Amino acid sequence: EVPFKVVAQFPYKSDYEDDLNFEKDQEIIVTSVEDAEWYFGEYQDSNGDVIEGIFPKSFVAVQG
């Protein structure tokens, strides 16, 4: 069931425009499960802007 919160276990950096880049310990709200390997989610950056994109499930852990 979406949405749910995950926390980055590792930093994720990608050159693909659709990917969500983040640092370790970033909290991310997952709004869609793309497939067995990928989530789609969002978070607010330090400027208060909402950043969204896809990212690999293996880089995050589900909270709770």
Rank of each mutant, 00 (worst) to 15 (best):
V7F: 07
E17W: 08
I28W: 03
Y16I: 12
F55H: 02
E1H: 13
E34F: 15
Y12P: 00
G64M: 12
T31R: 07
F10K: 14
Y16V: 12
E17D: 10
S32T: 07
Y39W: 15
Y16N: 15
G53R: 00
V60I: 05
V60S: 02
Q9S: 09
G64S: 11
G53C: 05
I51N: 10
D45I: 07
F55N: 02
T31A: 03
V7T: 09
L20T: 01
S32Y: 09
Q44V: 14
A36Q: 11
D25T: 05
A8I: 03
E42N: 13
E34V: 15
K57C: 10
A8M: 02
E1K: 12
G48I: 01
E27G: 04
K13S: 10
G64R: 06
Y39A: 00
G48W: 03
Q63Y: 13
K5I: 13
E42I: 09
I29S: 05
S32A: 14
A8F: 03
S46E: 13
S32F: 10
E1V: 11
K57A: 15
D19G: 15
E1A: 11
I51P: 01
S46V: 12
P56E: 05
Q9R: 12
G53Y: 04
Y43H: 00
F22P: 01
F59T: 09
D35A: 08
Q44K: 12
V60A: 03
A36I: 09
I29G: 00
D19R: 15
Y39F: 09
D45A: 10
V62H: 12
E27T: 09
G48L: 04
V62A: 10
V62T: 10
G64H: 12
D25E: 06
A8S: 09
F10Q: 10
N47E: 07
N21K: 10
E1Q: 12
S58Y: 10
E52T: 15
Y12A: 03
V30E: 00
N21G: 05
P3W: 07
F22T: 01
A8K: 00
G53N: 03
A61Q: 12
P56L: 04
F59H: 14
E1P: 11
E34K: 15
S14C: 07
F22C: 04
D15N: 12
F40A: 06
A61E: 12
E37V: 08
W38R: 10
N21Y: 11
E1W: 12
G41H: 02
I28K: 00
Y39M: 03
S46M: 11
F40L: 08
A61R: 10
E27M: 09
P3G: 05
F40K: 11
F55Y: 00
N21V: 07
Q9A: 08
L20N: 01
Q63T: 12
E17T: 11
L20Q: 03
P3I: 04
V7G: 01
F55R: 00
V50N: 07
K13D: 05
S32R: 15
L20F: 09
S32E: 08
V60W: 03
Q44I: 14
I28T: 02
D19V: 12
P11Y: 05
L20R: 01
Y39N: 00
Y12K: 00
I29H: 04
K13G: 04
D49A: 11
Y43P: 00
I51F: 14
D49I: 13
P56A: 01
V2F: 08
G53L: 04
P3Q: 04
I28P: 01
V33A: 06
D49Y: 12
E34S: 11
I29L: 14
Y39C: 05
Q44N: 09
I51K: 15
V33L: 09
V50E: 02
N21C: 12
E42M: 14
E34M: 15
Y16R: 15
V62Y: 12
N47I: 06
F4R: 01
A61W: 10
D18M: 14
E27V: 15
K57Q: 13
D45T: 13
D18S: 14
Q44M: 13
G64V: 13
D49M: 14
V50Q: 07
L20I: 05
V30C: 04
G53M: 03
D49H: 12
D18K: 15
I54E: 05
Y16T: 11
G48N: 05
V62M: 11
F40V: 06
P56S: 03
D45E: 06
Q63L: 15
S46T: 12
I28M: 03
G48K: 04
E52H: 13
K13M: 10
S46F: 10
T31C: 08
Y43L: 05
Y12M: 03
F55Q: 02
F59P: 04
V60L: 02
Q26Y: 03
V6Y: 00
